[in-house]
Design a protein around this nucleic acid. Structure first.
Lengths: 226, 226
DNA sequence: ACAAAAGTGTTCTAACTACACCCATGA
DNA sequence: TCATGGGTGTAGTTAGAACACTTTTGT
């Protein structure tokens, strides 16, 4: 038995589709590349997998460097293998997607580097590499996932109102959802609990504030969209 | 811009979870290793990704070599990255799962090599590497997938009866499903069409023979299991 | 005629859909 | 008091769950 790493192997990039919810829209975090290839183009933040690094370690390294972010929802998306996806040579991409709340870090230390920027998903610039297709897979996955698993909360602050969650779902799915049916469905799932407080400040009725119910045993719920 | 493949990179294995339906049970194709590591242990069939090879090419290479199989349903499963998953050194695994009909090839040329064997999924031997966890992910994926997409047909012959399909679903999902509701649901989906012929030979009523409806536009159907 | 498995229909129940009014707040 | 958006309930419809008898075939 001998080590086999002397044989040439493809490089392995980890690329991150970072979703954030801002101003009522689903946004994507993009990086403006300083070096070739695709210099001055927008791309997904990414890095090469180091020899003794786990995928998730690389993800954390990327987001810590670019955003000072330590905690976020992270899930493996897909692995891409086109031969020409990187002009420098054969490079696979193991892509992940992350859900973060932009508001929770912009004020903290290690804030966003000036080469990264949020873009609404419906108005993205041309992307370098094969990143447009990675984004396309990620959007499809997120839209499928949010119907069955409580991931929407990851995009909001810890305390949120039902109208906020409702608007988030409409923005992510790109459809309108009946307020009353949405409310009933979400509340019946047990995934959120009322805090008894209300969000004040608006000049109209103050909505109730809810929190994600961390104590709940994971289960699927069905949010059927007609 | 320069090639970066001079830096050391992890090896990339492609591992295949090959499902086949035999004797009323969901089976898995396993390979008995001739060399270390895990000599004489059962493992998933796999190979190292070559420098200019697509994932799917590697999958086809593996199944052509081991089974003489050319056509099969194939879908990427997940990528595994544990540092110690291969004792020879850092090796990622990009795993795929395949659905095949065992009956369609055993009689053909290039038949099954003598180091591969079918095992019922509920009675698997200990597996080398981290392959037990790959299998676990694959089973979960198949069970989720079969409820919404017409992949069950990939495991059967081109012509099949509804009782056969019914039994397949019960075997894959490990639950019993009401015959009448199952039949109605499948027929309403439009995914199968009656050929007008009947499967003869049994000493009881001869069931109708159906085929997968290739002309149908892809859509999801819901097979709800209580 | 009998045993064995295939084919078929209906009732009950639960879930989803559609929809309109009242309430709280700040200006 | 008015404008704005938040909170609530119900009737109608659809889909799923549960369930039993008749039909075909070979022996």
């Amino acid at each position: 038995m001998h080590a086999f790493n002397k044989y040439p192997n493809p490089s392995v990039a980890i690329d991150l589709v970072v979703f954030g919810y801002r101003e009522g829209k689903l946004n994507l975090l993009l990086l403006n590349r300083k070096e070739a290839p695709f210099q001055h183009s927008w791309t997904l933040p990414g890095a090469f997998l180091q020899m003794e690094e786990l995928f998730q370690d690389t993800c954390h390294r990327i987001l810590r460097t670019k955003l000072g972010l330590e905690r976020f929802y992270l899930e493996q998306l897909y692995s891409f293998d086109a031969l020409d996806r990187d002009p420098r040579g054969r490079a696979l991409s193991v892509s992940y997607y992350a859900l973060i709340n932009p508001a929770s870090y912009t004020t903290t230390a290690g804030a966003m580097a000036n080469d990264v920027q949020w873009f609404p998903t419906e108005d993205l610039p041309p992307l370098g590499f094969d990143h447009a297709s990675i984004v396309s897979v990620a959007l499809k996955r997120l839209r499928a996932k949010i119907l069955y698993h409580p991931v929407g909360f990851e995009l909001l602050e810890e305390a949120f109102t039902l109208p906020e969650l409702h608007q988030l779902y409409e923005a992510v799915l790109g459809v309108s959802i009946d307020r009353r049916n949405f409310r009933r469905k979400i509340l019946e799932s047990g995934y959120i609990i009322a805090t008894g407080q209300k969000r004040t400040g608006a000049k109209n009725r103050h909505p109730d504030i809810y929190q994600f119910n961390k104590a709940i045993t994971p289960h699927q719920f069905h949010l059927n969209i007609s």
